[in-house]
Write a protein that binds this DNA or RNA. Structure first.
Lengths: 233, 233
DNA sequence: GCAAAAGTGTTCGAGATACACCCATGA
DNA sequence: TCATGGGTGTATCTCGAACACTTTTGC
């Protein structure tokens, strides 16, 4: 399997190769864009996979930690550092790749809305964002990986503050609610949502308001401990 | 790192070897014994690790699925087939093993009380059960792996019927309660426990009673769908 | 003044918690 | 008859769900 990242980082020495076994890190990079949960995909470049898409990732180098390898893919493909990144699952079916044995350690990452560059009408032609609800055909088992990541994300909404990772440093409660609604795929009650989220005691009001059209401006909030994902309840 | 399992299964061809990279599957095998949550450990046999213990596991063979490899370790070390087995996390720090590069895909398994043989005063001298609350010194990062598995198990008690996997086909509600109490490390109220667990609608009364001493016999229950772990609430 | 999003409280029901006594048996 | 674990019901509290109107702004 030829990986875009291998080209981007030609100096990597794969941890394996001689016997045809590779260990890769594959990253499901989520963001909220166009009122959808979207993932960043790169075009497959192997001739037999023309027209298919795949997850950003790369071969784990001899000296690489798995997390480091995932971070590198994230930096190379999405151009971001320091975002939320979590290991998901390791896929090792000997037949998952027809050419060679590839064990994929999958990760998922969350990119804040304001840092989701690349893609879209004016974006880099080589990578793009896609709605998870409407994915193109992906190589190998990558669609399974995306689905597993989505399920994990949905589950974590319930018992952690992970959703806050999609937002910039300060944000309105309506923006936060919208993140939840998009990921869960359902409308939430505004009053109950605000009550619940403020009861977590991990948000603080700022003095600022956001003016955003011909209506009442919204209060901005910040996380008490930015970047930290907490378990709740 | 020399693995007991490698000896047990000398016919396995490691997926790697030439460049000194191995992929192993390591299994945290839990059971309830002696009113404790215990794990099965094997003595480390590498000379520099004399006296230390390690998790059962084995090198992933070229043709092995990861799950298959974990199952094989489970069968070889604990002598059981078909028990609950779930992938946990993949550890890939390049420095986790001083000798060579080893990427460990960890699993955890639950063995029903009545099938936990091996170990103990009369058991095989080469492997033994240990209380997770009082582990001997383990090789490498194996203590971290056990702790992660324990945390996952505790978390799953809350939102799944995973605890039922520790019990035989039919069991009393007191036995079930005891499993919860041991894993959680706290006493539970008998009436509330029974109410909650029966409200799950996944247990059925049997016609049988268990006579177990000079007191009222206990009703035996069975899972409606044995072997199936369900998510709850 | 009107359109559009921000902001705010109360009621209700379900499920969790706390709690104490009688039952069936074997010795 | 007594020691032992099995088995049961009620009152209370907490938390989530449902629900509608006023506020502030820009045009």
């Amino acid at each position: 399997m030829n990986r875009t990242l291998t080209k981007v980082l030609p100096n990597r020495i794969p941890a394996q190769g001689a016997l045809g076994l590779d260990i890769t890190a594959e990253v499901v990079i989520f963001t909220i864009r166009q009122n959808e949960l979207q993932v960043l995909l790169v075009p497959a470049d192997h001739h037999s996979q023309r027209g298919l898409w795949m997850l950003p990732g790369g071969v784990v180098g001899w000296e690489d930690d798995l997390d480091t390898c995932a971070s590198r893919a994230l930096a190379a493909q999405a151009g971001v550092h320091g975002v939320y990144l979590e290991q998901l699952y390791t896929f090792g079916d000997p037949d998952r790749c027809p050419d060679r044995r590839v064990i994929a350690v999958s990760y998922y990452a969350l990119i804040p809305i304001h840092r989701a560059h690349f893609g879209g009408p004016k974006g880099d032609r080589h990578i793009d964002w896609f709605s998870v609800a409407n994915l193109p055909t992906l190589v190998l088992d990558h669609a399974t990986i995306v689905e597993l990541a989505r399920e994990r994300l949905v589950a974590k909404l319930d018992y952690s503050t992970i959703a806050f990772q999609f937002l910039p440093e300060s944000f309105t409660l309506s923006e936060l609610q919208s993140v939840y609604e998009i990921i869960l795929g359902e409308q939430l009650d505004k009053r109950n949502f605000r009550k619940r989220v403020l009861a977590l005691k991990c948000l603080q009001q700022t003095a600022e308001l956001r003016r955003n059209g011909s209506h009442r401006p919204a209060r901005l909030y910040q996380l008490c401990t930015p970047g930290k994902v907490e378990y709740i309840k």
